[in-house]
Design a protein around this nucleic acid. Structure first.
Lengths: 113, 113
DNA sequence: TTAGATTGATCATTATAATGATCATAAGAC
DNA sequence: GTCTTATGATCATTATAATGATCAATCTAA
């Protein structure tokens, strides 16, 4: 194969753009140059550029790390103050109630098309 | 270099774990097998496994795509309705008020340590 | 207005993420 | 209990993300 050519939904595209712009906004509000901020995150300036543009092919970890250092809230949790303990516990509880493995359904009717 | 060896903050790690478990929870609640769901997202079953475990080295795009299909909200925006317009406008407005380029500061005092 | 610095962009190279194949385990349907 | 199938995990291979170098344009501070 010569190309990957992946298709992304509008939601995915917009979510990444919003996240990237949020990072850029927070970085500037805190008066960090792109170079300095990238260094803080542990990535190159070029990669930070991609992240701030909402490039979908960046790694999840470095994007989240940039968001955390910039102070962008994920799941409504402030990186500087909160943690995810409560959220995690809730999800774990709900997961425990569901079957370990799912049997295949013949029809797929669970989406809202 | 033989290894990458990146360091991530707890916030980043937990955010990814929460996101992954949220996807797994939503997938099971909708009775999709891992194989079927991965196919829907357009990724392999192995990659879905990594995403659901909160692997930070997965691509942002495929993780967001999985979250969108599962119905997991990263921000306050519901994937089903998915209107980022208002949020984007707000961020753009604020960005317009900040300087295009940031001058280096001698001291870094903007974080709350 | 000028000078130095920041940003945006492109390209080749290198490191690494994504995949398919495969096996063991165990969970659900009967 | 038995049988079928979903899941978790590992490994080698391939596709691709991350990087450094570099250049032009533009911005900020003086």
């Amino acid at each position: 194969m010569t190309k990957r050519e992946r298709a992304y939904s509008r939601y995915t595209k917009d979510a990444a753009i919003l996240l990237g712009k949020g990072i850029k906004l927070a970085r500037k509000a805190r008066k960090f140059t792109a170079r300095d901020f990238a260094e803080r995150v542990g990535i190159s300036r070029i990669t930070l550029q991609k992240i701030e543009k909402g490039d979908l092919k960046c790694g999840l970890g470095i994007v989240l790390e940039a968001a955390a250092l910039a102070g962008v809230k994920l799941f409504d949790v402030d990186p500087a103050r909160g943690n995810f303990a409560a959220h995690l516990e809730s999800v774990n509880d709900k997961l425990a109630l569901l079957p370990k493995s799912i049997r295949k359904r013949r029809q797929e009717v669970d989406d809202d098309f």
